[in-house]
């Protein structure tokens, strides 16, 4: 779902860059000295998760897991996902340079929204209930991401509207899979390390 250089209009690129800078600043404010290692290692985990391919019928999709990032990191998901996108662009050539802001907002804003709405629900109740809320969050984050990608394409010109629609429909199976995997990941984390949701709460503060 990376957008590349040269496709978007200047207005969209600038709005994206400003919004990304704001989000990153919010995220950095929530990161105290004690939280830097946790956020850094989680940021690396989400980078590695994006290398995992999951089969869907004859094809496969790679994980994004931005909903999970939002649930675990809150606002800190913004700088953490930005760093991942920056490294992908520099060392793998994925995405682009001037569109880095837009791409960051497209991935990180849904993460933060899902994190803020569902964080408490995921951390409370039985592990299964938490996992179901996390699953909803995982699917919702992808739905929101495709929505924002579609908006940034459509706002750049009417000629991209077919591409924007294609992006949305092509990602419906991704939503299902991200939802399932996020749910199971939280189920395991709740059972194996229940205190994680106490320690992680500090990141949001």
């Amino acid at each position: 779902m990376h957008i590349v250089d040269g496709a978007l209009s200047n207005t969209v690129v600038i709005v994206g860059a400003v919004a990304a800078a704001g989000g990153i600043a919010m995220g950095l404010r929530s990161l105290t000295l004690e939280r830097i290692p946790t956020a850094g290692v989680l940021s690396a985990s989400f980078f590695v998760a994006s290398l995992i391919y999951v089969p869907v019928g004859p094809s496969s999709v790679h994980l994004i897991m931005n909903g999970l990032a939002g649930i675990l990191l809150g606002w800190a998901a913004f700088p953490a996902l930005f760093v991942g996108l920056l490294l992908q662009a520099i060392f793998f050539g994925f995405g682009g340079l001037t569109v880095l802001g837009v791409n960051t907002v497209n991935i990180a804003l849904p993460a933060v929204v899902v994190g803020l709405i569902l964080r408490r629900l995921v951390a409370s109740g039985t592990p299964v209930a938490g996992a179901i809320w996390a699953g909803i969050g995982g699917a919702l984050a992808i739905a929101l991401t495709t929505g924002v990608v579609a908006i940034s394409l459509a706002a750049s010109g009417d000629e991209f509207i077919p591409a924007a629609k294609l992006v949305f429909f092509a990602h419906i199976p991704v939503m299902v899979i991200e939802g399932l995997l996020t749910g199971f990941a939280i189920l395991l984390a709740r059972k194996v390390k229940p205190e994680l949701f106490e320690t992680v709460k500090g990141v949001h503060a």
């Binding site: 290692v41 675990l72 395991l188």
Partner: peptide, 20 residues
């Protein structure tokens, strides 16, 4: 999907323990 979910969950739990 359940196995991959557990895989991601396990990686996160280990990552947080490592960060501590």
């Amino acid at each position: 999907y359940r196995s991959f979910g557990y895989l991601v969950g396990m990686m996160l739990v280990r990552a947080i323990e490592r960060s501590e």
